[in-house]
Each structure stands twice: as C-alpha cells, then as structure tokens.
C-alpha cells in the first residue's frame, strides 16, 4: 500500500486535496475523506482488535483524535501514515493494556477456543476456519508484536513505513515483526491449522 495514494484512484479529488480542504473546515471534504479511508482503517483495526465492537471503537476514537488534531497536521501528503500512527497509539492505549487473551477470555467473548488444546485431536477437524484462527492467534499475542504484523501483512507496508508509524528504530521493528510471525506460526500449529 502506498500511504500517500488515495484508496480509489480517479474517484475525485486526491486525498491530499481533501485533507487540505478538511483542514480549512470544509465539511464535505471531511466526509469524503472519511469515506476514502474508513475501509483501510477498518481492516487494520479489525485485525488489531479481534472483534467488531472493539474495532468500531478503535476506528471512531482514532478518527475523532485525528480530526481534532487535523488543523495542526503540517504535511497533508503524510495523512494516512499520520492517521495510522494515531490508530496505533489508540490501540496501545485501549487494547494494549489488556493481557493477551487466555482460552477462558476467548470463550467468554464468544470466540471459539482452540479445540486442539481443549478437546484433543478429534475436535481438531471441527476447529473454526482459518480467519477465526488468525483472530485468536493475534488476540493471544502482545500488542507490540500484533501491530507490526498487521501493518506489514494486512496493509503491505514497508519496514520504513512501519518504523515511522510505530515510532521505533528499524531494527526493533524487524525484531518485533519476526517474533510476531513466529508467534502466529506456533499458534496455527497448535490449533492444527497448519501441519
């Protein structure tokens, strides 16, 4: 994903133009900007949060904080990167303090627990699909590993983008990303999703 690109090329004014207009208080530009970015933001939030309710809270709170601070954004070209930075701050504030979820938490939240760990191999075949397993794997890992994993593999961002958004040195970004990938792999193995 190119962070300066608009989501729907050719579908009206550029994102940068919308940001500039919204900074001047143009309400239509503001609405168009929300329409332009909300799906991308949702994808990240949904993966980070693990369920619809928390993802919706995350998107809404991030956009509120962003639009309050919008007049102070100096480089409208970097809007998406700036917005993702805010979203990650909000995710850390609101979701990061929570412990990675235990099987009991997941069950309480209505997310099917890992059948392989609870009921043995025969239940493995009945385990929920890969998408749900991914949600469980992400929920089970600390936010500092979840964030680079989602930004890199859901939004297809570069390491440099990650370093900027997460405000971390490149080396730390890579270490966390590699550790997150390993946690994901181990989790999917445990669930029997992968041989």
């Amino acid at each position: 994903m190119n962070l300066t690109q608009q989501a729907r090329p050719g579908a009206g004014p550029s994102r940068t133009a919308l940001v500039r207009a919204a900074q001047r208080g143009d309400e239509r530009a503001f609405r168009a900007l929300v329409a332009d970015i909300q799906q991308r933001l949702w994808q990240v939030a949904r993966r980070l949060a693990g369920d619809d309710d928390r993802a919706a809270d995350l998107v809404q709170e991030s956009l509120m904080r962003a639009f309050r601070a919008l007049p102070r954004l100096r480089d409208p070209e970097r809007f998406m990167s700036w917005l993702l930075r805010i979203l990650n701050h909000v995710a850390t504030d609101t979701l990061g303090a929570r412990q990675p979820e235990s099987l009991e938490d997941l069950a309480e939240a209505g997310i099917e627990p890992m059948a392989s760990e609870l009921e043995g191999p025969e239940a493995r075949a009945e385990a929920a699909g890969t998408a749900e397993a991914i949600d469980r794997a992400l929920a089970a890992m600390p936010m500092i590993y979840r964030q680079p994993l989602v930004l890199r593999h859901v939004l297809d961002l570069t390491y440099d983008d990650l370093a900027q958004i997460l405000d971390l040195p490149l080396g730390t970004v890579k270490t966390r990303l590699f550790r997150g990938r390993e946690m994901l792999r181990e989790h999917l193995l445990r669930e029997g999703i992968r041989p």
Partner: peptide
Amino acid sequence: SLAAAIRDLETAAIPAMPLDFSRSLAPALV
C-alpha cells in the same frame, strides 16, 4: 509453515465493516 502462516494472515477474510457503523461514522464525526 512460516510462509503458510503468513499467507493465511494475508489472505484470510477480514469481516466487513458493519453497514450501520459505516453509515453513521462520518455523521457522528461531523
């Protein structure tokens, strides 16, 4: 297994944004 796990993460469907949330988001922000 690592490559497969990453492929799963990249291709697994993400639940769509609920329509009512999507419709109410911009007006709520405004």
